[in-house]
Simulated assay, not measured.
Amino acid sequence: MAVKPEWLRVKAPQWERVGNVKEILRDLNLNTVCEEASCPNIGECFNAGTATFLIMGPACTRACPYCDIDFEKKPQALDPLEPLNLAEAVRRLKLNHVVITSVNRDDLPDGGASQFVRCIQEIRKVSLKTTIEVLIPDLCGNWTALEVILSANPEVLNHNTETVPRLYRRVRPQGDYQRSLELLQQAKGLSPQIYTKSGIMVGLGETDEEVRQVMEDLRGVDCDILTLGQYLQPSPKHLEVKGFIPPSQFDEWRKFGEEIGFLQVVSSPLTRSSYHAEQVQKLMEKYPR
């Protein structure tokens, strides 16, 4: 793997705090995308007592070659205790904002929509002040399932476009760029009060012009929040990094995103879809709905 530049180096985490969070997660039999996807910000987020919960996993029904989540294991039946355990983790960690994401569960008729709803409902029971963000798969274009998730009224509906259309066949072979855009458009139409969000990873061979076009496409479906971050190769078997994008370019994309109307753009090499997601609370105060 290519040597990472200086701007991609992260501080060593305070393992005492990290260990405490991990202990709670293991005790409640929960998975986090922080661990499963080898996120570089795990130390910072765990030290802050935050985590992005990965439900219905850890096995995924898709095999995206950039992702470190396991697709070789067979997906298991949904755990009926998972929503209760997730809510208990939110209570123990005293989270003000929680992100719930999932593996792809194309084997389920609703893509797992009902499990998202149960998780949201259980969190509401223990912490009414906690804002909730759901980072969902494309549900194979099942907009009835999307409506089910939206009926639980999360504050943020996040779905990542991940890359530019030209690279979809290589990066997201089971995904569809237009379907992802339509999901965000459908979400805004069904629940205009909910903030919609998407994310792009760069360094896979895309051009500046292509990234800007995706940003414009997302604004075209009234997407509110955007994250842009550098792709990092989890292991030699995953897609190679085609280029390390300097921080100055991320600043340019952030400025462009703000110019074309995004309410919030989080753009830096280490940005991930859930990185500093709690900042949405400030956004909600500035742009109430």
Rank of each mutant, 00 (worst) to 15 (best):
G261R: 10
F71D: 10
L78V: 11
P165W: 12
Y275F: 15
W253G: 04
L181F: 11
H276V: 00
V90N: 00
P234I: 07
T271L: 08
Q14V: 09
P65D: 11
D68G: 12
K286A: 13
L28Y: 13
G189S: 12
I194M: 13
F250M: 11
K125G: 00
T227H: 02
G49H: 08
N41E: 03
H276E: 10
E147G: 10
V211W: 02
G112A: 08
S273H: 10
E147F: 02
V10A: 11
V164W: 04
L95V: 08
N104T: 15
D222N: 15
Q14I: 08
N20W: 14
V103A: 10
R272K: 12
A48E: 13
C119W: 04
V164N: 10
N31C: 15
E155Y: 05
I200T: 13
S235H: 03
Q233A: 08
S127H: 09
A2F: 14
E72K: 15
Q264I: 00
N104C: 15
N20Y: 15
F256D: 03
P137I: 05
P269T: 04
N160Q: 10
E23M: 12
V103S: 08
Y66P: 06
L146S: 09
C223G: 00
Y168P: 10
P75W: 05
K188L: 01
P13F: 02
K242H: 14
E133G: 07
Q115G: 00
P288I: 10
I149N: 04
I245C: 01
